[in-house]
């Protein structure tokens, strides 16, 4: 457990957030891996996993969020997921198959591992999962970082200038990005 924040009332939230993180991921992975069997798909799994992580951010602040590796590289994860999804869609073409053909095909036997079935739609779903996860975490992370930046700028009394001048966002160093 990390050091508790001075604000006492936050304690509940923080322990709650920490407790929920693991189950949220377990649920997410379960939803995803069950494949075609039941309600839910990569999309909802991704959002649920993201909610678990975002709760950490809410409870512990942006700096803590940054500690979770998966949140810092979330946008990259998102594009890894897109790549995965694209591959499942287009790789069959290379094998002379139709676009978006899944293995195993209709009525073909699938490799079972307990209740898990190894079918390519699961790979596709993992891709979807990563994209959505990356989107939710990455987007909110961006907002959180923006807030931190604002606070820093405001402390230096430059915030108003940097905003009223309009246009691009000024860096902490005052250098205009883009």
């Amino acid at each position: 457990m990390p050091a508790l924040n001075p604000q006492k009332h936050a304690g509940m939230l923080q322990s709650g957030a920490r407790i929920i993180l693991l189950p949220s991921w377990v649920i997410a992975i379960a939803i995803m891996l069950k494949g075609y069997a039941d309600v839910g798909d990569g999309f909802s799994a991704g959002v649920i996993a993201a909610l678990g992580v975002l709760l950490q951010g809410l409870a512990f602040g942006t700096d803590e969020l940054e500690q979770i590796t998966l949140s810092r590289i979330a946008p990259i994860l998102s594009f890894v997921g897109l790549g995965l999804a694209l591959l499942t869609a287009f790789v069959p073409i290379l094998f002379g198959e139709n676009l978006f053909t899944h293995w195993p095909g209709i009525n073909e036997h699938a490799v079972h591992f307990g209740v898990l079935e190894f079918i390519t739609p699961v790979v596709f779903d993992i891709g979807v999962f990563l994209i959505v996860y990356g989107f939710c975490v990455g987007g909110l992370h961006a907002i959180a970082r923006e807030e931190v930046r604002q606070v820093r700028l405001r402390d230096r009394g430059r915030y108003l200038r940097s905003t009223t001048r309009g246009g691009s966002l000024a860096d902490e160093s005052g250098e205009v990005r883009l």
Binding site: G139, A142, E146, T163, T164, G166, G167, L169
Partner: peptide
């Protein structure tokens, strides 16, 4: 929403 934020930044 992200765009609204930039509109706010550029027009206050």
């Amino acid at each position: 929403l992200a765009l609204v934020y930039r509109v706010y930044i550029s027009h206050y």
